[in-house]
Structures are given as structure tokens and as C-alpha cells.
Write a protein that binds this DNA or RNA. Structure first.
Lengths: 211, 211
DNA sequence: TTTATATTCTACTATATGGTAGAATATGCT
DNA sequence: AGCATATTCTACCATATAGTAGAATATAAA
């Protein structure tokens, strides 16, 4: 079922000379990207390693030169999403901006991540139960820590009297994250609004947090 | 691996008489409930029919007397969630209440559904890609129709001048549904707040929709 | 008790798939 | 060119599991 790749054939180049084209080489990143899309579309369990290999124009055996097993591919996706998420949010929290502005930026950031890592995000919030061992525990902890950033911003706003004190910061965090992360269920890049525009509407919707 | 069920043995009843105990009978609903929990915890793809049968104290063969195949179990779950969701929301939309009150009730309803059908909801928003054929298409349509209810409420509120006109009703709907449905990722019945309390906080958060 | 029906169990098949070993091929260096 | 290394391919194994057939057992009615 593996595709016969052009790259294995001898081709004519621009000058008409026959040259052996470099074999299209597989990389970990390529595996991760292709897998993200397949996992998002068909699910981790329903995507076979043969599927992934075929999408890369290679065979299953080649995959195992770059990754230890199927779960490692999933691990790569989780690490990518976390890496893209954590740092920027941490920086927002550590600025001196007023809480409402911090929250605005946090929402913008979360929306942006959900939008442009769309397939990876879909996987991130859907296939966690396939992770096992220490890595699974690590993800749980890092997700909790990530939520804490949002909670901090909200607590700060409540302490300085600009956010409603009647809303539990944890619940508010879940609400905001749900709103933003849900993008992975509906967002399409070709849609009417940019992630920034969507984030702006979300901010407007939730200015109910302000007093 | 199948459990030997007590119900197959001859027991002594309270009066000391030996009686044949009724065999614990499997029903479609029992299969659906057990499967909901297993699917939510391990995923549809990673849950085998043997797993489900074992949780019911039966064998796989018995399952096939009540359902046609594995996908039908998933279909049952989807139908249950939709049945529990659609009607009450439709009634809210069709009342004469002011839009802001309609929206409050809609949020309350959505939160309640997400909370007390928790495993089923997890499955509902995670395993849709395992549905095939006409049923898959039906689900897509009914989900869209469901979103339309929310959009209607928001449009109505904007038309009567009580909701901000700058927010696209579709985006607002996605935001609100995301907020509520995200409960399936974190809600635990033994937690600090009731679904009603959570819904009240969500309503407060999003009163930014009001002018 | 007998009989018909409903329900479950046992044992099996066919298939898909994660993973592996070693051969084959490409690549880059000397 | 020749060699060592990196990378991919082919062919295979072992296992899990959806689904099936028919025997076995329970249930209810007469």
C-alpha cells in the first residue's frame, strides 16, 4: 500500500540532465505534523501507523527509526502544544499591566493558540487518556499549573477591586478556557473572523467579570 | 475472563428456602450506561466489547442480542444526549421571557446537561468521528440546529437593544457552549459547587453581553 | 411437566495493527 | 571508487478484538 515515491526515481532536471533526486527524508517533526492531522480527523485509536507512513509516502518501518512507538508521537504533540502555550502566558502574568489588560491578553493568547495549532489542540484535549506512565502525570500537572496562571490573574483583579468577587477564580478559569479551547471544535482558518477578532468578542462578552 | 455470576447459582433466601435467583438481565440501557463510562474513561477505540461485557458481568455474545454492533452503542449515547438537550432548550426559546432571562435559562440548562450526563457528554464531544453513514450526518445537523437556538436568543436580544450588537451571535454561541460544555473536562459531582451555582457564575461572567 | 420462546454462553473466525529483524539502499566522507 | 554510517524497505510475528454460529440455559405459559 506504500506509495512509490518520485524521489526514488531518476528525473530530468531543469537543464535536461538526469539526476538522482534526494530521497524525501522523514523527520520527527514531519511525523508529528502528519499525525496531528490524522489524529484530529480520525482519532488516535483509529489511526494506524500505516496511515501515518502512507501520508508521508513512506513505510511503517521508517517511522520506527525516528520514534520509539506510537505513544511517543502523541507525546510529541503534547509537548508542542504545551511549549507554545506556557511561556507566553507566563510572560503575561509577570508583567505590570492592570489585571483587566492581563486578562485580555491571556484570552487573546489562548484563542491564538487554539486557532493556529488547531489539529494539535483537538488532539490535546481529546486523546489524553492514551498517555501512560510518568508522562501522563506530567501533563496533568502542567495543565493544572497552566490553569493557575489564569486563576492568578483573576485573583489579582478581585484583590484590587476591579473584578467581581462573587465569582470563584477556578470556575471563571474553567469558563474562559472552555470558551477559548472550544475553538478546536469549530474554528476554520478560512472563516470570517481572525483569532484576534474572535478574542476581542470573547473579551467583550466576559467584561461581566469587571465591576 | 467472564465473571461467574452469583445469579446463576442456587441460593438460600431469607426464609431458608433454596430458590433459583433471577438471572441478572442485560438491557440496552445498561449497556449504554456502562459503555458511557468506559468510553469516557478509556476512549471508544480503546474500549473493547469484552470490557463492556465484563463490566456487566456477562459475555460479549449477550451484548449482540441487544445491539447490532459496537457503533450502535455509540449511537445510543448520542441519542440520549440529544434527547436530553433539545426539548428543554426549545421550550426556553419559545417562551415570552425577555432575552436576557432566556439566555440565563439556556446557560443553566446547558450547564445542567453537561454536569449530570457527564460521561455521556464527554463521549458526545469527543468520539463523533467514529459515527458513520446517515447517522453521522444527522448528528451534525442536529448539533447545528441546537446552536441555532442559542443564536436566536442572542439575535433577539440584539434586536431589542439589550445585547451588544458588536458581537457576532455565532461567535457568542460558540463561546457560551464552550464555556458550558467544557464542564465535561473538569466537573466532578462531589465538587464544591452545584451545576446551578456554576451556571450562575457563568451568567455573571457573561453579562458583558448586556449593554 | 412440557413446550415454545427469550436470553446468554462457548468457541470460533477473520482481520487489523503495533512492533521487530534484517536485508537493501542511500549518503557523505576519505 | 570504496567504505562506514544513516535511513528506509520488506516480510514477518503476536496479539487484540469485532463479529458470528450454534449449543446451552433460563423463563413463562399451558
Amino acid at each position: 500500500m506504500a506509495l512509490k515515491r518520485d524521489s526514488l526515481k531518476v528525473r530530468q532536471n531543469d537543464a535536461g540532465k538526469t539526476v538522482k533526486v534526494k530521497r524525501a527524508r522523514i523527520t520527527q517533526k514531519a511525523i508529528e505534523l502528519v499525525a496531528s492531522e490524522l489524529f484530529a480527523r480520525k482519532g488516535f485509536g483509529a489511526t494506524s501507523l500505516d496511515d501515518i507512513a502512507e501520508s508521508l509516502g513512506a513505510t511503517k518501518g521508517a517511522l520506527y527509526y525516528h520514534v520509539k512507538n506510537k505513544e511517543e508521537i502523541l507525546r510529541l504533540i503534547y509537548l508542542t502544544v504545551l511549549t507554545a502555550s506556557e511561556e507566553p502566558l507566563r510572560r503575561v502574568v509577570e508583567t505590570d499591566l492592570p489585571p483587566s489588560e492581563k486578562l485580555r491578553r491571556a484570552i487573546e493568547h489562548q484563542t491564538a493558540v487554539a486557532a493556529d495549532r488547531s489539529p494539535a489542540m483537538t488532539v490535546f484535549y481529546r486523546e489524553q487518556h492514551y498517555l501512560t506512565g510518568p508522562f501522563a502525570r506530567e501533563i496533568i500537572l502542567r495543565k493544572k499549573a497552566y490553569e493557575r496562571y489564569f486563576e492568578q490573574i483573576i485573583e489579582e483583579g478581585q484583590a484590587s477591586g476591579v473584578f467581581q468577587p462573587s465569582i470563584d477564580p477556578k470556575i471563571a478559569t474553567y469558563g474562559l478556557l472552555g470558551m477559548c479551547n472550544w475553538l478546536s471544535q469549530w474554528y476554520r482558518p478560512e472563516g470570517q473572523y481572525s483569532p484576534q477578532q474572535i478574542a476581542a468578542m470573547f473579551v467583550n462578552m466576559t467584561c461581566g467579570l469587571n465591576i
